[in-house]
Structure formats: C-alpha cells, structure tokens
Design a protein around this nucleic acid. Sequence first.
DNA 1: ATGAAAGCGCTAACAA
DNA 2: TTGTTAGCGCTTTCAT
Lengths: 339, 339
Amino acid sequence: MPTIQDVAARAGVSVATVSRFLSGQTVRSADAVREAVDALGYRPDVAAQAMRTGRHSAVGVIVPDIGNPFFAAIVKGLAQGIPDGGLHMLLASSEESAQLEARLLADLDSRVDGYVLAPVNEQDRLPLELVRRGVPVVLLDREVDGGEDCDVVLVDNAGGAASAARHLLDLGHRRIGVISGPANTTPGRERREGFLSVLAEHDVVVEPGLDLVGDFLEESGRRLTEQLLALPERPTAIFTANNQMTVGALRALQAASVPVPDEISLIGFDDLTLGGLLQPPLTCVVRDEVRQGRTVMELLVERLGHARLAETPQVPPRRVVLETTLLVRGSTATPRQEA
Amino acid sequence: MPTIQDVAARAGVSVATVSRFLSGQTVRSADAVREAVDALGYRPDVAAQAMRTGRHSAVGVIVPDIGNPFFAAIVKGLAQGIPDGGLHMLLASSEESAQLEARLLADLDSRVDGYVLAPVNEQDRLPLELVRRGVPVVLLDREVDGGEDCDVVLVDNAGGAASAARHLLDLGHRRIGVISGPANTTPGRERREGFLSVLAEHDVVVEPGLDLVGDFLEESGRRLTEQLLALPERPTAIFTANNQMTVGALRALQAASVPVPDEISLIGFDDLTLGGLLQPPLTCVVRDEVRQGRTVMELLVERLGHARLAETPQVPPRRVVLETTLLVRGSTATPRQEA
DNA sequence: ATGAAAGCGCTAACAA
DNA sequence: TTGTTAGCGCTTTCAT
C-alpha cells in the first residue's frame, strides 16, 4: 500500500501539499498530485486519519435482532441513507440483551463517530450518556426515558394501534385479545396504550386474561395466542403488536385449526413479507421501514457534519414520527356471534 | 478518554508494562495495572492499535442485498460466529452491482483484516486479488472462477435442485418450467444445471420457452411466471431458484387465479419466512442459513488467527458444502392432466 | 501556496 | 521482568 509519502515523492511536493490537495484545498501542483495518486492507486489509511483527527468515518448500528426481516428492511434503509463515499456501518445485534448492548457499545467506542441505536429498553441509560459526551446518536424506533435531548425516528405507534382498534370495533368486535410487547419498550408500551384507550373510549373492557404481554418474539406470540384460545370464552379478535408475534399467532391459530377470520379475526402491527399472500391475507398496520431507516441515517449524517465542523454546537434534537397506514385485507371480519 | 499513558502513570509503571499486561503477558505489577485500568475505565484506542500493528479487529461483509431475509439470516449467523470480544463486522450491500462492490471493497481496504464476500458474479476478480495479497477471504454462497485458493461455504445447489426435479418427476410432471438465476452466479448456474440434468436423465425435455433465467429478484420471478402462464401450453409445475423469485411466482399465480397445486405445482429453492403458513404451504429445498453464516465466520476467524500469528503461512483453502433438504409440503401434487 | 516538523496512542525492538 | 524509544501514516500548526 502506497503512503502519502510515496505520492508526495512522485509528485515532487511535500506530504502537506498532498494532504491539502486530498482535503479539497486549491494547490498549485494539483495535476501532478492527482497523477501520482492515480498512478500509485493511493488510498489514505483510515486508521492513521482516525488517530490524527479523532474521526473514523464510520457509524455504529445496534439493532435488537438482525435476523428479524423488519430490522433487515431498516438496515437496508440505513444503507441507502449513507452518502456516496467513505462512511461505513458497523453492525451489531444486541439480541435484546442490555448486557450485550453495553459491551457492544464499549467495543465500538473508539471505532465510530456516531450511533444508530434501538435500545433494549426505555430505562437504558447508555444512549443519553453518549449524547452528554457530545457523541451523535439517533434512536431507532425506540425512545429512552428522559431522552428529549436525543434524535429519534419513531412511527405513530399509538395512532396505528388505535386505527387497528377502531377497525375491530367498527366490525362489531367487543371481546378482543391484545398481545403487546414489553412495557418498557416504546413500541410495546405505546401500541398497547393506543389500542386500549380506543377500546376504553367505547366502553369495551379488556379483562386481564385478554391483555397479554409478550417479548416481540415469535414464540411468545404463539404461546400467548394458545393461552387466548384456551380461555373458557375465546376472544373474537386478536391484535398482535409486532411482526414476529403475528407469525406466532398465525401458527397457533393454524395449529388449533381456528378459521380466520370466521372464528377469530387477526390484525397485526407491521406487515409480513408474505402478508398479502396468506390465506386470508393479513390485515395490519403498515409503515415504510426502509424509509424509516433512511431517515435515521440522514439525521445522523447531518449531526455528524455539524459535529465535524463544530458549528452550531447545539443542533436541537429532532423527533420524527412517521405515519402508519391501516391495511385492511382479509384476516378481519365481523364476529360470527355476538355475546 | 484516558490513554495508556494515564494508566501507566497511575499504576506507577511504564507504558510498555501496561501494554504487556493488556496483551496477556505476565507482569509483576499486574494488580496495580488492573486497578488503574478499571479505575480509569481505560479502553485501548483501536485506531492507534491498527496503525501500529496493521490489524483492525474488524471484518468486512459484503452481501448482494441486505434487505433479503435470506441474507438477514446469514448475517445473524455471521454475528453468532464472532468470538466473544472485540471483533467487529462492517456490513455493506452491493445491491448486485459489480461497480458498487468494487468501491465498497476499496473503501473497506484500510479498515478490516478480512472479508466475507458474496461476489456479484463468478467472473469477479476482486476476491482472488485479495487472496493473492494474503488477505483472509471467505466466499459466501457464491464461488468465483479459478477460486480454488479461496475458502468458500456453499450449499449443495445441484443436489438440492436435483431433489426438487426428482420430486416433480415422481409426481408425474413432464412439462416443467424452470426459473433460474443469473448463469454467472454459482447458485444460478448450479441449481439450473442440477435441475435440468435430472430431467434429461429421464428424457424430459425442457423447451426454451420453459427454461427462463431471472435475476434472483422478486420482480423477475413474477414476470417470468407470467410468461410461463401466457404459453399456449402451460407447464404443470414450476421450479424457482431462490426465495425472492418464489415470492414473485406466488404473486403471479395468485394474480392469475391459478390454483396451486391443482393447476400448477410450485417448488422453490430456499424457504420463505411464512412458507409453511401459506395456503398451500410451500414445498421447497431448505437449508440452515444461520448455520451457513456461522460457518463462514468461523472459517474467517480461524484464518485471521493464522494470519496474525504468521503461522503455517499456507492454510489450505477449504470448501464447505452444506446439505440441503427437500421439504415436501402442499404446493406440489400430481399434475391434473397428462398431455 | 508551500514545506518542515510535531504528535495523535500504541506496540515492539532494544537495552538494561 | 522492565523501561526507553522509534515510528506506524496522517493532519495541522507554524514559518516562510
């Protein structure tokens, strides 16, 4: 690998001139330097640049589960949001473990200029510690307590869940099972509250046995749906608060040979890859995951730029809430029998 | 951020001693150093280490499409294959573009110690150039021409496709549509050849109009299936060579209201997230994607270790071929009518 | 506009 | 076993 020294020698200038040329400054010997760079195939050593400047042209991304197609779509969006050259993404999966998340964050510390984080829970202190240290951070899909100082890109969890609830009410459902996510995560909390509050407005009571909390993983969706099916009086509809739990619910319903939507209606938050091809096609609250990822990266890149130029030291924190859409397909219908 | 100097000062030793302690050598003042490290919360600066040693404790991963759930599963496996601490994954998506792949590779050059690559095509020269430079590389799911010197983790593409062909023949199909991937990719080429060779053995001719080549993306699966459906004499079965094209085929079949498997049987290579919940559930050739990813990372880590120790300069290249399994579900059946 | 030179934090000779 | 020190490749003063 040629170094900046080699380039300088070949171009007959000092290393300082080459460095200036590379950083875009006007240099008398620009042509000669360019020639040398091309001829030698010179590429600056990122480690040396990082050591000297403290900047790494890399961002750390920690998602809870990279195997989840939802986060795969998000990551695709993140990649799209990266400007043309040189900025890289260090990806890690916390597997929903606060401990692992902390370790990953520590490991990434001297490698990246900023972070995209989907914190394991809202009590997570780490993201704000970073922000206080002046490190650019954008929260992805999940907030943290007291996180007003931190950029975040959410979706309208409460609104989306509310539209799901209204849809079921409109169809005539009154006995509804809710499978939500961990109460200490933003989507877990907001979707449950958004859903339940609409029911409450319409004087529909969700008894404890129908108000279940899962962990966003497929297995818990399956187990909790089985639990609902074992009830003396089954619900006529079920709301599942994320894609994986919806899959679990589908498996449980299929295993129990419960016809959907004839016997039980099912509505999910977030679409499935094949949601539209299921029989019946899944009714769900959808959003543009790729766009969400792209938005996150755009915010982060902007903040990195400010950090680099040390300009406007205080970029006000931004809170972006993307819309959700109710996608009515075939898995919801009027309840077969009223109580 | 405290430096090694700070630690040395606090522990009352030289920086060399601290460095030795950190690298695991036995040091008389171990306790004092440990105390200083902990008290200061010292973490070595990776950039400085990289500059000094040339090692980055990071690997570059380039996949063709991170939004594809298949690669998401692979990446999950890669993450699992990373040993406990410190090794990081720089992830990028080539979007099946050779040009972008080349740029990404160049960008990653001074940031990583090795690569996981799923080359855009088999004529790709870049992976072997890296290998010749002594850079550890493991190819993922795709080989390159003359790549005998390079580790690679494949699945039994030909065998899996052959089992799909045999399954259709056993059911009595003789007029079969094949939607394969680009002929210059390993899975594209091997799956088509494996499938067709079994048909040929049984004197089943696949006329040109039934032998279609797609690009592994959903849209091409849809389009080519439509093409098959527009034939004067439709096939009684279709084989799709990857997950995304299977999705496209499903959409086309559904859009055309073609009953599966009554009218046309469908068999895919690789399962879909909800493959088992479709109506009918998808018959397909499956493999363990997570395990494949894990295996790739294990090979790479091993090679990195050798490179680091400069021991056994020539670790022989390894070629791992993982098995596939034919998963017979409901989307294949005997053809309705014989010609 | 340019060059000389310091120094970022660390590791590995080398000397003791 | 330990400390001293050179130097990895780069950017950025500071002179000129």
